[in-house]
Amino acid sequence: MNHHQLEKDIEHLEHVILRISAADRIPLSYWRNRIDSVSGAVRMPAQANRVKRLEAALSALEGRQKD
C-alpha cells in the first residue's frame, strides 16, 4: 500500500469510527479487519499512533456490544 493510500485509509477510518455504533448495519468485525489491514502497512510512528487510537476506540465499541 502506498503512503497516500494509507493516509486516505487512516483518515477514512478516523472519520467513521467516531460515528459508528455496535447497532450499525456494518458489523464491527468489518471495521476491525479494516484497521488490522491498515495496521500491517503502517511505516511511520505518527501513523502507528493514529492506528492505536482507532484500535482503542473500536475496542471500546466492541466492549459495549458485549455488555
Rank of each mutant, 00 (worst) to 15 (best):
I26Q: 12
I17H: 01
Q5S: 07
R25A: 07
E62Q: 13
R19S: 07
V38F: 02
M1I: 07
V16R: 07
V38I: 13
M1N: 07
R32Y: 05
Y30A: 09
K52D: 15
S21L: 03
N33M: 12
G40S: 11
A46H: 11
P45V: 04
K8M: 12
R25F: 00
E62W: 01
S29I: 09
Q65F: 08
N2V: 03
L61D: 04
A57C: 02
R32E: 14
L54W: 02
A57I: 02
E62M: 13
I35K: 02
A46L: 09
L28V: 08
K8T: 10
Q5Y: 01
A41F: 05
P27L: 08
G40D: 11
H15S: 11
V42H: 04
I26T: 15
A56M: 13
D67T: 12
H15N: 13
I17D: 01
L58P: 02
S39V: 03
A57P: 00
R64L: 11
K52Q: 14
V51K: 03
R53L: 12
P27E: 12
S21N: 10
M1G: 12
E14Y: 02
A22P: 01
P45T: 05
V42I: 09
N49M: 11
E62P: 01
E7A: 09
A56T: 15
A41G: 01
R53H: 10
R50M: 06
H12R: 15
D36E: 14
H3F: 08
D36C: 00
H3S: 13
D67G: 07
H4T: 15
R25E: 12
A22L: 02
H3L: 12
K52T: 09
N49H: 09
S21I: 03
N2Y: 01
L58A: 04
H15Q: 11
P45S: 06
L58C: 05
